[in-house]
Design a protein around this nucleic acid. Structure first.
Length: 833
RNA sequence: GCGGAAGUGGUGAAAUGGCAAACACACUAGCCUUAGGAGCUAGCGCCGCAAGGCUUGCGGGUUCAAGUCCCGCCUUCCGCACCA
């Protein structure tokens, strides 16, 4: 029985052994801080939230990153491949409520469990650089950055309407509101509340964040586009309309100032300040406005703002167009947003679809002011929205093209001081206050005498107290801890109160990858020299769900640190890769659907190598992957074949170790050729295409050929040095994908030291080249037959060989050969008529 | 509505404009047996007994040659969306 067991590939035993050996050798995966002639390579996967267990999405993400890290090590790079924990956040508080476990304990237990899973998977992280964001050694630097940003005016406090999730009992950033719902609670309507909040002035970098996208060629176009849309730059003009009989002005924003002679009304958002004033002595209007606001609120909560019908109410007042003095009615409309532009628009029904719809409904005049550029063209139906036209009915501007008119009219507005050219952004400042316990305390103090006073640097960190009662009732839990709240003012020494809100957890993940380079530094967030060496990240890998939140915040944070003189790079990561989702039976894995596959289960049944390799084999990394357990079993069987083949022939291969190979021929040549072709293919893929699924397939093909030659190998027909090269290289090629098995077989082949330190094999083009190739022969582009010719055969030889074919001769008999297309090395196509 | 990606066997998929379906999974038949979640051999796009014909969402086009390039549709997924 025991004897039989040894004949079989047994991942459980192999992987347990190597896991132990690797754990005892922490230097194996440690990068050198610098002072090495090796080029640096920084690869990072997005850090996980320590929920308690890895899911398949993690496994896939880390399998991709680990294959790359291992490959780069073998290519001779100094590789930084770190891992950490995005450890603050709401689930810890929920768990505390549910199980009465302190958030810290719950979180750190989860970290330990997930770390074990990662080690079981054989992921090559340098644990000496591990970062856990909920520990004061880390979050004190969040506070430090907050204070630096406060000094630079990049942090401010304002009362504002905020998105409030009743379920989280806290404020959400705009980015965390999806269709009016909370990003964590798909079924919970987000409410609007008025609160004093801390903001990061990300809008100060709006233009730069936008411009930077053009240079991020190593990022997926999809992510860049999403960020462009999110930043939402819009060029236009602001123009003041006068209000008849009143001193106020209505400033509108428009991208089409060239159509302003067609403005037949001005539309205000229901919350627009002037509306309140107008409604003050008009009870009927006040009631209608209240109704509009209520409706808008409900539509927003239903998440279907765009679908509600446009309507509004006339105020009975009139606005004055500054260009022509024309009087137009002032309306209040439900489709005008207070938080975009100025909260007021000019309505040009002839040249805007929404305004058209509105004007039709309320019989507001429609005045055409743009005509087609081509005077012979037919008058298009309204609304006519293109900018490719000329102005009509527009006084002195008649005849100008839209573009020229915009420029000229902006000039007029500026000179007459009733307007100006203006660029606006959809991007809003980042609200970071959270009324939560499990987050970074905001290092500010409210003093009755001195107002807002920052916590001095030498009083950092403001430590999160351990014993705080967590309830679901809302408000900041920290405010219920008197020891935390009551402090003396650093300025006047008088009694004061601490800020009790904590920071959004996206603060933690905005700069964590910098901390990896110097994770134990207790004097600064990191040593700029170390960051200077490692940054930017060469390859960042994670899910596309972070395309805007995390990836825009961390781009912002990088620029802030740059302006603080801490880093030299503008962008955090040179290249970004977003892997596809792991799905099962066509749907995203979720507990409610009951289609969750546990990584632990897979590892227990098939081993870590098979699980990881399947995650790479089943689909190209950027596409969604449908998890099929049979597929994992298949990969496991394949690894078994590799194990048997290698262990069987290892004794003879070891004899050939270090000996020069004779000139190969026959089976040797055939196998070596395949070996060098495979090496070339995989090397190439790592350099750019990243189709690891075909890399695994290529290794399978190689093993299939070796196995087909098993009898010849057993009979000693392949010289020992060749056999050695074949098996040794096979193991090297396998190492990034199946590290446990590779380590095992490496030793089996008598090699000392880690596979990871062995140089990546080089493909010899001379050996990889075939000497005879198959050439398809077509007639009029249709495949008829295949010929074999020498690899270097010239066109003439190929043409002659093709035309000599019986099948070809039979088919062209009686027809005229127009021409013969010959692509050397590729095909012959006979064109006949 | 705007933007992005994708549509190929029973399934996951492969294919610098040059033999469509590599590599696997599943399935079928057979062998072996220490009866294993094992191994080996063969078959496996569709129609057809065969010869042969057909086949990459649909319709056009470019080309000696198109899954691949161009134009127009359809479908699915993802992101954004009364953004003035």
């Amino acid at each position: 029985m025991a004897e039989d067991k040894e004949q079989r590939y047994d991942p459980a035993t192999i992987e347990a052994r190597w896991q132990q050996r690797w754990a005892a050798d922490p230097a194996l995966y440690a990068a050198e801080a610098a002072k090495t002639s090796k080029p640096k390579y920084y690869v990072a996967e997005m850090l996980p939230y320590p929920s308690g267990a890895l899911h398949m999405g993690h496994v896939r993400n880390y399998s991709i990153g680990d294959a790359l890290a291992r490959h780069m090590w073998m290519r001779g790079y100094n590789v930084l491949h770190p891992m950490g924990w995005d450890a603050f956040g709401l689930p810890a508080e929920n768990a505390a409520l549910k199980n009465n476990t302190p958030p810290r304990e719950w979180t750190l237990n989860n970290v330990a469990a997930m770390k074990r899973q990662m080690q079981r998977l054989g992921l090559s992280y340098d644990w000496a650089t591990e970062v856990t964001t909920c520990l004061p050694e880390y979050y004190r630097w969040n506070q430090w950055f907050f204070l630096r940003m406060y000094e630079k005016g990049l942090v401010y406090r304002k009362k504002s309407k905020v998105n409030w999730c009743p379920e989280c009992a806290t404020v959400l950033a705009n980015e965390q509101v999806i269709d009016g719902k909370c990003w964590r609670h798909e079924d919970t309507q987000v409410e609007m509340r008025d609160l004093e909040q801390w903001f990061f002035r990300i809008t100060a970098y709006a233009q730069e964040l936008l411009d930077g996208l053009d240079k991020l060629e190593g990022w997926p176009e999809k992510v860049r586009t999403m960020q462009r849309n999110w930043i939402g730059r819009s060029e236009g003009t602001e123009v003041d309309f006068g209000v008849e009989g009143r001193s106020e002005k209505i400033r509108v924003f428009t991208t089409r100032v060239d159509t302003i002679f067609g403005a037949t009304s001005v539309q205000l958002a229901p919350e627009y300040p002037l509306v309140k004033a107008l409604a003050a002595d008009d009870a009927a209007l006040a009631a209608q406005v209240a109704k509009l606001i209520d409706e808008q609120k409900r539509a927003r909560e239903a998440g279907d703002v765009a679908a509600i019908e446009k309507h509004g109410v006339p105020t009975g007042h009139f606005a004055l167009n500054p260009y022509n003095g024309e009087q137009v009615p002032i309306w209040i409309a439900n489709y005008v947003l207070m938080d975009y532009g100025t909260g007021a628009i000019m309505s040009v029904p002839a040249h805007d679809e929404r305004d058209f719809e509105f004007a039709k409904k309320y019989a507001i005049p429609i005045k055409r002011v743009i005509a087609p550029a081509d005077p012979k063209a037919e008058e298009p139906e309204l609304p006519f929205t293109t900018e490719d036209g000329v102005l009509v009915n527009s006084g002195e501007f008649n005849g100008l093209s839209c573009a020229d008119a915009q420029k000229k009219m902006q000039g007029v507005a500026t000179r007459s001081v009733f307007g100006e050219a203006k660029v606006i952004f959809r991007l809003k400042d980042w609200g970071v206050s959270r009324q939560r316990y499990w987050g970074t305390p905001i290092p500010m103090i409210h003093c009755e005498r001195d107002g807002l006073v920052p916590v001095p640097d030498d009083k950092l960190p403001v430590v999160l107290p351990a014993q705080v009662e967590i309830t679901q009732t809302g408000g900041s839990p920290l405010s219920r801890d008197p020891d935390f709240v009551h402090v003396t003012c650093p300025k006047c020494g008088g009694p004061a109160r601490r800020e009790t809100d904590t920071m959004d957890t996206f603060v933690d993940s905005s700069w964590y990858f910098y901390r990896y380079t110097d994770a134990k530094n207790d004097r600064q967030p990191f040593d700029p020299a170390r960051v200077g060496y490692w940054f930017p990240i060469d390859q960042y890998i994670g899910g596309v769900e972070h395309a805007i939140l995390h990836l825009i915040y961390s781009r912002f944070w990088t620029r802030v640190m740059r302006d603080l003189g801490l880093v030299k790079n503008d962008e955090p990561a040179q290249r970004l890769f977003t892997q596809g989702m792991v799905i099962k039976d066509g749907a995203k894995m979720s507990k409610s659907k009951g289609n969750v596959v546990s990584p632990d289960d897979m590892v227990a049944r098939y081993g870590a190598d098979a699980t990881r390799m399947y995650a790479l084999f089943a689909a190209p990394p950027d596409r969604d992957l449908d998890w099929q357990e049979d597929g994992v079993a298949g990969v496991s069987r394949f690894l078994g074949r590799v194990w048997r083949l290698t262990t069987k022939h290892a004794p003879r291969a070891r004899i050939g170790r270090g000996q020069a190979s004779p000139n190969p021929e026959g089976t040797s040549l055939k196998l070596l050729r395949k070996l060098h072709q495979t090496t070339a293919k995989i090397t190439q893929d790592f350099e750019g295409r990243w189709h690891f699924n075909t890399c695994v397939a290529a290794i399978m093909e190689l093993v299939n050929e070796l196995q087909a030659a098993d009898a010849q190998l057993a009979a000693g027909q392949v010289p020992a040095p060749v056999l050695h090269e074949l098996l040794r290289t096979l193991v090297l090629l396998l190492a990034p994908f199946a590290p446990f098995l590779a380590a095992e077989l490496w030793e089996e082949l008598g090699e000392a030291g880690a596979v990871l330190r062995a140089p990546w094999p080089k493909s010899d083009p001379g050996l990889a080249r075939e000497d005879e190739i198959e050439i398809p022969v077509q007639i009029n582009g249709k495949l008829i037959t295949v010929i074999r010719v020498a690899a270097g055969a010239d066109s003439k030889t190929m043409e002659a060989a093709a035309l000599a074919q019986e099948k070809i001769r039979a088919r062209i008999a009686g027809k005229t050969v127009m021409k013969v297309i010959v692509v050397p090395g590729k095909l012959v196509n006979v064109v006949v008529k």
